[in-house]
Design a protein around this nucleic acid. Structure first.
Length: 942
RNA sequence: AGGACUAUAGCUCAGUUGGUUAGAGCGCUACCUUGACAUGGUAGAGGUCGGCAGUUCGAAUCUGCCUAGUCCUACCA
């Protein structure tokens, strides 16, 4: 074996070996356990969130696979409608072509081409993380099977009246030319202005002042509203306003939507361009005047509609000066025009939430269009119940509140998108605009008895990407066919995801799944029993990682390493805002002056695990990766030591009597306790605690103590064959168990070492992946051995402390005396003399009983004094200083306990066992104090 | 505006139903090339657990208020 751990060498081949051998596939035996991967964007690439998310899932999957479950981890990718279409359109734009130049079919060919070309990137990257997904079942949301499921769901929901088409105000993205759902709109506080305009009364008797943040929409005003109780305007309600510029007459209405206190208490109402105004308009049966086109430019001719059936009543010519103007251009002109008319009252600075499209970044326009909707309220009912009843549990639990509050106030879901890349809506229209929904054109014709030559056309729009991902848990298993997989692996066990997509995805999956998938009793099936919500991976400063901030880390760069120049280039090419490049360059140089070292997959995975505590965000700390890389090295070298001492030697594989030393019994005992801790932690999704328990055991017990304790046995020329066999056996078996225990978190290093260690531990098998996960044998927990080793450690640490503080070379053997020990201490000494001498580097050990001792540096182990004679070794003043420090510490503790125990209330009210414990502690501390103090006085007196 | 979460060592984080001398890693200090490991070892320094009040014999832990930060939801034209 190499002297140091070299991840790149050992991670090369294992993944292919595992995949080709079919170890990632369900075994077909045992209880099922399944997880569906949250499908990443097919043309995307890996980021830290994926790394984290995959590590958590793979750890759970490997754990359950080793526990003997019939384990499926279902992989796949998402077509990501808007994102993917945008990328391809951008590519075309570089050639000066638009999708409309190509036409729908040719454009889709291009997208498929791009998907084929870049589609493998992220799945290759997922492999590098060691994710043991069943690639033979890989799915894509636009596969024929999944598209079929989408169609089936759409048609059924439509037939049940749960999908409808209607003209509504939608969030319109004027850049992408599509409607988007509420969730895809991000509102940020921005500073803008509030314009106050004077709207003259029709009768010329004065004016009302309205305040607005959107002057350009005044062209579509159809009323001015005041509060019904507002005495200032009560007399005006029912009168008309002569709307400036268009000179249209509009009524003054009363509606309690208006806040009397805000602004002037008068609100202009534009039902076709504002969600609130739309509601007001509906209540008062105002007409809707649409003044914008799909680019959010002023229409040359406005469309005027009414709420009844939204039939277009007539057109209205736009004032010539504004026709065709972009909305913000129009805003300026209108403000100017009103100013010139003397109708601009004032302009105030005003901060407001500006809605922007999450993809395009442009301001979203409420716009009146025909769209398809899912009626969500009936679906939400069952979805809420499932969580209320605990059929689905959120971890951590507080996310249930977030889920409930959204679900109980859920709005209908706009599912149509004016894109080409996606599932085309299975609806057809005839010449008269009648709608026919069916799986195919043929089905539609027969279902609705249409003439064979009737001219019908399929809807041009596609479905929201989340519509197909909402079906993910069952569409990937073959639904609507009643497949075996569906029966075996649905409901899935756990969904591992970030909180950011609880509404986008989790909630919708629950609604859709429970509506379509029923168990044999007809009861709705949940898509997953547990939702494990983890935090976001942020950079070292706690900032969200984003391309535009230039602080993105690629998990593969931590695995493989990257030099500074390449990292800089990666962070600064293809930027939306090239002017940021300089700043990002400096940031990057400051943070990674040497680039990033290659830490390997296992170290990265272990870091993710150790940071995966209760749903809080992760500030990614490279120092921890380095620490855990070193931990890998520790395991590696421990294995080297074990192999050096066991390979080609008798470890008891062939039988033969063996004798376990105290250290052997102790490490086996501690191993069982660790196994209990790790299993409990994984079962409760506390991978951080699992990682910590493992780390503590391997480093602080197995390596720091047990390996050292094995040396005196293995190097003892007089040791019996049984004793040697016992220690070799324990060395190798504990190591082998550690490897299995750690494998779900660190698959590569454990497999690599296991291959060599397993035969020595009497294990056989092709791979560690399918070995049984360690289960604690509580009979092997040996508290007597635990106590004995604690004593031994106490003595050794005591001596080391004296050495360290007194500057005695660790190479120098020193004499040791033990004084005032009990019979128990004497027994322990008798059994551990060899261990003691070796680990504390002692020249001799003298048992003094209560005899007079020479002047010495003192440590206490219980009541027993551990003495290192001062003669020739120790400076008097140094020992006085050391002891004084110790005495002060003990004295403080003594006072604390005395105070507590002299408190009458504590003694009478606290539980008896707590009081007893404190009393015992005091006695012990008191004795320590006396002894140390006495010793201190003695030395001072010299 | 409503709600959630977070605040513990210089940094990143643990701390289970209230009872420990409040822990780990990194960093820091001193010593050490000892036959697994310098991607190392040994010893050590470092914390009034955000603040104030309360409940309790006892609070990092429970309650209230305050401060700072993060996020979600709904928003006033």
């Amino acid at each position: 074996m190499e002297k140091t751990y070299q991840p790149s060498e050992i991670e090369q081949n294992w993944y292919n070996t595992w995949e080709q051998a079919g170890y990632f596939k369900p075994s077909g035996e045992g209880d099922s356990y399944s997880i569906m991967i949250p499908p990443p964007n097919v043309t995307g690439s890996l980021h830290m969130g994926h790394g984290f998310n995959n590590t958590v899932m793979d750890t759970l999957i490997r754990y359950h696979r080793m526990k003997g479950h019939n384990t499926l981890w279902q992989p796949g990718t998402d077509h990501a409608g808007i994102a993917t279409q945008m990328v391809v359109e951008r590519q075309l734009a570089a050639e000066g072509v638009t999708r409309h130049d190509l036409g729908r079919e040719k454009f889709l060919d291009k997208v498929w081409e791009w998907k084929e070309q870049s589609g493998g990137t992220i799945t290759r990257q997922i492999r590098r993380l060691g994710s043991s997904v069943d690639w033979s079942r890989e799915r894509f949301t636009m596969d024929p099977g999944l598209s079929n499921a989408v169609q089936e769901v759409f048609v059924q929901l439509y037939d049940e009246g749960l999908i409808y088409r209607g003209k509504r105000l939608v969030n319109w993205d004027p850049k992408l030319h599509t409607a988007i759902s509420d969730l895809e709109v991000l509102s940020e506080e921005e500073s803008g202005s509030m314009w106050h305009f004077r709207y003259p009364l029709e009768d010329g008797s004065g004016h009302l002042v309205v305040a607005t943040t959107r002057p350009e929409t005044m062209l579509g005003d159809t009323a001015v509203a005041v509060h019904p109780d507002d005495e200032r305007y009560a007399a005006l309600v029912g009168k008309n306003i002569r709307l400036p510029i268009t000179n249209r007459l509009i009524p003054i209405i009363a509606d309690d939507y208006v806040d009397k206190e805000f602004g002037t208490g008068c609100v202009k109402i534009t039902p076709a361009h504002d969600f609130n105004d739309y509601e007001v308009g509906k209540r008062h049966n105002l007409s809707l005047i649409n003044v914008l086109d799909r680019d959010a430019q002023i229409l040359p001719e406005f469309t005027v509609l009414t709420f009844e059936g939204y039939e277009t009543q007539h057109g209205e010519k736009a004032p010539e000066a504004y026709a065709g103007l972009e909305r913000f251009e129009a805003r300026k002109k209108i403000v100017n025009a009103l100013d010139e008319l003397g109708l601009l009252d004032k302009i105030e600075p005003h901060s407001l939430k500006v809605p922007r499209g999450d993809r395009s970044g442009v301001v979203i326009e409420p716009w009146l269009t025909d769209q398809w909707y899912v009626k969500t309220a009936p679906l939400a009912k069952e979805a809420i119940r499932a969580v209320e009843d605990g059929d689905i549990q959120f971890v951590p639990k507080q996310y249930e509140n977030m889920y409930f509050s959204w679900m109980r106030d859920i709005q209908d879901w706009c599912i149509s998108r004016q894109l080409w890349w996606g599932h085309r809506i299975p609806a057809w229209y005839d010449q008269n605009g009648n709608v026919y929904v069916g799986r195919t054109e043929d089905e539609v014709r027969s279902k609705y008895n249409l003439d064979a030559d009737a001219d019908i056309r399929q809807d041009d729009d596609v479905l929201d990407t989340w519509f197909s991902s909402a079906l993910w848990t069952f569409s990937t298993l073959g639904w609507p066919e009643q497949t075996n997989e569906l029966k075996t692996f649905h409901s899935t066990d756990v969904l591992v995801t970030g909180f950011d997509i609880i509404f986008f995805w989790v909630a919708r999956m629950i609604m859709m799944t429970m509506h379509f998938i029923k168990d044999e009793n007809g009861k709705p099936q949940v898509p997953f029993k547990t939702v494990y919500v983890h935090g976001l991976v942020r950079d070292a400063q706690g900032q969200k990682m984003s391309k535009s901030k230039g602080n993105v880390l690629d998990p593969l760069d931590i695995i493989d390493g990257i030099d500074l120049d390449t990292l800089l280039e990666k962070r600064t090419t293809g930027m939306m805002q090239p002017q940021m490049a300089k700043k990002i360059g400096k940031q990057t140089k400051d943070e990674f002056p040497e680039g990033i070292a290659a830490y390997g997959t296992d170290a990265l995975r272990f870091t993710f695990c150790s940071l995966a505590s209760t749903g809080r965000d992760i500030k990614f700390d490279m120092g921890r990766v380095e620490g855990y890389r070193n931990f890998c090295n520790k395991i590696w070298n421990a294995a080297r030591y074990v192999l050096m001492n066991t390979e080609n030697q008798d470890c008891g594989q062939q039988g033969g009597d063996y004798q376990l030393s105290l250290a052997d019994r102790w490490i086996v005992s501690r191993l069982q306790q660790t196994e209990l801790q790790v299993a409990k932690a994984i079962d409760t999704f506390r991978l951080d605690l699992a990682a910590q328990a493992l780390y503590d055991f391997v480093k602080n017990e197995y390596c720091d103590w047990y390996l050292e304790l094995s040396k005196p046995v293995l190097w003892d020329d007089n040791a019996s064959a049984e004793t040697l066999r016992g220690t070799r056996r324990t060395l190798v078996r504990v190591l082998e168990t550690i490897l299995r225990l750690a494998h779900p978190m660190m698959p590569y290093i454990t497999e690599e070492i296991w291959q060599r260690v397993a035969p020595l531990a009497g294990k056989s098998g092709e791979t560690i992946m399918t070995q049984a996960y360690p289960i604690a044998d509580e009979n092997k927990i040996d508290h007597a051995a635990d106590g004995d080793i604690e004593w031994l450690k106490g003595v050794i640490v005591g001596v080391r402390n004296i050495r360290g503080e007194m500057n005695i070379s660790p190479a120098k053997p020193i004499p040791l005396m033990l004084k005032d020990g009990s019979a128990e201490d004497q027994r322990r000494l008798g059994q551990n003399e060899t261990f003691l001498k070796s680990l504390a580097k002692l020249e001799s050990i003298t048992w003094l009983g209560s005899d007079e001792a020479p002047m010495a540096a003192t440590q206490l182990v219980g009541d027993m004094e551990v003495l290192v004679p001062m003669a020739g070794l120790i400076d008097k003043d140094a020992e006085i200083a050391r002891l004084s420090k110790e005495v002060e510490k003990v004295s403080k503790e003594c006072h604390r306990l005395q105070g507590k125990l002299s408190n009458e209330k504590f003694v009478s009210k606290a539980p008896a066992d707590v009081v007893e414990k404190e009393k015992a502690k005091l006695a012990e501390v008191q004795a320590s104090f006396d002894k140390l103090n006495e010793q201190l006085e003695k030395i001072k007196a010299i």
